[in-house]
Computed example of a mutant assay.
Amino acid sequence: MYTENLYEGWKVIWIYKDEYLLEVIKNMPEKPKTIYDHSVLGKVFGYFDKAIKEFIESKLCDTQCDYT
């Protein structure tokens, strides 16, 4: 278990299975902007690849996708 201060009087509690995930949690982007950021967060939060792809294609491809 790992806790972080979110705001005054608020904390975030992370419960994770494997120890290496603590490093992932500590280095996650706070405000994801890129396809990479969103992909990593999707994986950390347990989303399937298909769901991540659909989100990226619906929200980010207008400005960031380059499938040439």
Rank of each mutant, 00 (worst) to 15 (best):
Y36A: 13
V12L: 09
N27W: 09
G9S: 00
P32R: 14
I25L: 02
T34Y: 14
L21T: 10
D37Q: 08
V24K: 09
K31A: 13
K26S: 04
K26P: 06
I13Q: 12
D18S: 13
W14P: 03
M28T: 07
I25R: 02
V24C: 04
W10K: 13
E8R: 03
W14A: 10
N27L: 06
S39Y: 09
I15K: 15
I13G: 02
Y7P: 02
I35L: 10
T34F: 12
K17V: 07
M28C: 04
V24T: 07
E23R: 11
L22N: 06
L22T: 02
Y20R: 06
Y7V: 06
W10L: 07
S39F: 09
N27H: 14
Y20L: 02
L22V: 03
P29R: 08
V12R: 12
Y20I: 06
P29K: 13
E23Y: 06
I35Q: 10
I35T: 11
Y7C: 04
E8S: 04
Y20P: 00
Y7Q: 12
N27Q: 09
K17F: 05
Y16K: 04
Y36S: 13
K11G: 09
K17H: 06
E23W: 01
K31S: 13
I35E: 07
L22G: 01
K11F: 11
H38S: 06
S39W: 10
I15G: 11
H38L: 01
W10C: 00
P29I: 03
G9W: 05
